[in-house]
């Protein structure tokens, strides 16, 4: 499935116009999967929100450069393994992310955006899981 980088960037820019985008993402994730919440105790909510938005931007900014995405994925894989993140949790995060983006974009959200984000996240999650599988 093709990933439309422009669609990813445009929808992310719109989502980030909401100051509480990251906060809404975590609220959704923790409401659906409360068992995730204890994994985020090392950082305050404000710091966690900033780190999440910053990492998401870094990945989307580099989406056309596979080696940079892989480098980001490796870094995430390393820290998340230390925090006790399990494989199935990546799916939960992906669902919460796409749903939060969809809400934030409102009427600007399209099927193409849904497909691009799902495909991009799937590829990223696979890259994060890859070092552990290897």
């Amino acid at each position: 499935m093709t990933i439309d980088a422009k669609v990813l960037r445009d929808t992310l820019e719109i989502a980030l116009t909401r100051d509480d985008f990251a906060e809404r993402f975590y609220a959704r994730l923790f409401a659906q999967h409360p068992e995730c919440q204890p994994l985020f105790k090392r950082n305050s909510a404000g710091a966690q929100n900033k780190m999440f938005a910053q990492k998401l931007c870094a990945i989307v900014d580099a989406i056309e450069e596979p080696e940079r995405v892989v480098a980001e994925a490796s870094a995430i894989a390393k820290t998340h393994a230390e925090y006790g993140v399990r494989d199935e949790m990546y799916g939960w995060v992906g669902d919460a992310l796409v749903a939060t983006l969809r809400d934030a974009n409102g009427d600007d959200w399209s099927d193409e955006a849904e497909r691009s984000w799902s495909a991009a996240y799937e590829a990223l999650a696979a890259a994060i899981r890859a070092p552990r599988a290897g």
């Binding site: 090392r42 950082n43 305050s44 404000g46 710091a47 900033k50 780190m51």
Partner: peptide, 13 residues
Amino acid sequence: FFEVRAGARAEPR
């Protein structure tokens, strides 16, 4: 008034 990163005091809000 301060954020916490990796368990340590970080930047002020």
